[in-house]
Structure formats: structure tokens, C-alpha cells
Design a protein around this nucleic acid. Structure first.
Lengths: 160, 160
DNA sequence: TGACATAAGTCGTTATAACGAGTATGTTTA
DNA sequence: TAAACATACTCGTTATAACGACTTATGTCA
């Protein structure tokens, strides 16, 4: 609907009263934007049988190569924080996408590594994901993207 | 950590490889910012026994006054889309925060209305929420907030 | 060294989310 | 007007998220 696009978030969520502050409007815009994009990502990944969280974990492990990552290292690197990495890895292991091994040096630590099946899945997804990114945000152009990234960085300052 | 604040999202999620595109960086920044803020909201609301989704629904119903809203109207107005408004309202009803009534005109429709207990809870939350908004995003200032809101609006264009 | 604290994961449990089928009501059409 | 379709919601089921208690392994320090 074109109306939605031009009239701002207030029209999108059919709000009657104006926002009480710019801060509130920004916060709600942020939540809605993220939710909509997350939903699209979810749909993109669905045919491949992985959730956005799982995809995120797999990409972290691809970046780590043979070295792998411990559960807490994975947790640190997640985009959306997950309080139970154990079960996240459980599910990926059950699908044969990652492997687990207990560390000899520090036997508390369990290191997860991506398997060749996991790598293959990611490889299959690289193109669609890249296309998705362009399709969703490419129309902003370089300048606006950079500005958005900067503004979001400032927006996170107080939220840590 | 100050480092995190200045070094951008790449340092925050301890990423080794650079982002493959600005679009990807923007998307991940957006997800992370929203997640962090959502987490803080979650914590803010926890002592009051409501989730962000429930809070959102209550505010929608406060805006609707005595007229109330049907389940599908609520769904349309949610910031984070919820596929099962029935159960969302169930939970709020069980806590006495909303009431349900079947419409006489169209007996398919169930209208939810906020109760005085619900209004009181929201009233209690108004101040803390407003303070939260200012605390989280106030440091951006008017100009940056407006720019952010505009950019997010553009970012949502293709995600609908 | 032994007591204590901390760290890293695991797992039981409860709550919530997601999916889809089912029910009742209302609208449209042949 | 009966059949077909559409709408609004409900609910059973399965999967995932959230909360904490628990286990095991390392560090710290008197």
C-alpha cells in the first residue's frame, strides 16, 4: 500500500494519538523495521530448515574455520542474544550441520565446529541472502546506508 | 565498554571478516540495535508482569477507549506481528487487564476492551517508559532522531 | 593444600511462539 | 435460496525461548 509508505509509522500501525516524543517514535520505528525484516529473513530461510538464529550461529562457525568456537564465544557473537546456546547447538548437531568436542586444555569448554554439510548449506544460501540484502535495503544507496549504520551505532550506545 | 561504542558493530560482534556489503552491515546493525533495546524494554516491564507484546496490546486498547478493538484490529496495530492474538488476549484477560465481549452486530467478532486495572497498570508504567525512551535515545538529539526515523521509514519500504 | 569463588555447560520446567486444522458466522453468486 | 466462498476467531500440537538449579572443571587465596 502506497499510503503506508509515505505516511510514516503512525499510519502503518493506524495510531490515532501522535507519539508522545521523538524518542518513542524512533524506538517503535526501530522495532517495527527490525520485525518486518526479521520476518522476511525467516521466510527466506524456512525452505532450508534453519531459523535466523541458527543461520547466525552457522555463519559464526564458518568464520571461525577449523578452530571452532565455544558456546560462550558463540553467545558473544550472536546478533540476537540467546540465553541457551547449548540447545541451539544441539539442534544444529542433530541435523549434522555442526560437531561438538570437549576441549582437552580446559575440560569445561565445549567447542563447536561447522561440518561440511553445514558449509554446503551456507554456500547454497550465500547468493539468496546477498540478493535479499540488496532487495531489502539496496534502494537506500551508499550514503543513506552509511548514515543509517552510524545512527544505529549511536542508538546502541546506551542500550548495552 | 568504550571500545564497543566507537569501533562499530564489527567489533561488537567480534567479527573477523569485513561485511560483504553495506546492506548486510545495515541489516545486522538494525537487528542488533532492535534486539538490545527490546531486551532492555523486557527488563523494564518484567517487574510489572507483562511482556513487550502484552504492553503493546494494552496500549492499543487504551488508545481505543471504550470502543475496544477486535482481535484482527489489534493484530494490524501491533509493532511486532503476533499470529495468535487470541492467546495474547487470553493471558491479559486472565490477569484481569482486559475484557472480551462478542459483538452483536457481527457475531464472529470478539472485541477486547481494557479494564480499569489495565489502565492503572499502564498509568504506573507511563513515567518509567518515558524515562526509558529518553535515557535510551535522548542523546541523539532532535535532528538525529528525525533522520533516523526517516531512514527507517525508507528501510521498511521493501520489507512489507 | 583445602575452602571458597568463579566459569562453562547441561538440563528440567514452564511459558510463549508458530503452524495448521477446525468452528461459527457472514457474504456472494449461480 | 442453496452452495460456495470468505472472515474472525479458537484451539490442539509441536517447537522454541526463558528461567534457574545443577554438575563439573578451574582459578584464588589464606
Amino acid at each position: 500500500m502506497f499510503k503506508d509508505v509515505t505516511a510514516g509509522i503512525q499510519a502503518e500501525i493506524k495510531q490515532v494519538k501522535p507519539f508522545s516524543s521523538l524518542e518513542e517514535e524512533a524506538l517503535l520505528s526501530l522495532q517495527r523495521t527490525a520485525d518486518q525484516l526479521q520476518w522476511r529473513i525467516f521466510e527466506l530461510l524456512k525452505p532450508y530448515g534453519v531459523s535466523p538464529t541458527q543461520y547466525n550461529a552457522l555463519r559464526i562457525l564458518r568464520g571461525a574455520k577449523e578452530q571452532g568456537r565455544s558456546c560462550s564465544e558463540i553467545a558473544d557473537r550472536m546478533i540476537n542474544r540467546d540465553p541457551d546456546v547449548t540447545r541451539l547447538i544441539d539442534r544444529l548437531e542433530r541435523r549434522g550441520l555442526v560437531q561438538r568436542a570437549r576441549e582437552k586444555k580446559d575440560r569445561r569448554v565445549v567447542t563447536a565446529r561447522i561440518t561440511s554439510a553445514g558449509l554446503e548449506l551456507l554456500k547454497e544460501l550465500d547468493r539468496p541472502v546477498e540478493e535479499f540484502n540488496r532487495k531489502m535495503l539496496g534502494h537506500l544507496g551508499e550514503q543513506k546506508l552509511k548514515r543509517l549504520i552510524k545512527l544505529l551505532e549511536v542508538a546502541r550506545e546506551r542500550a548495552v
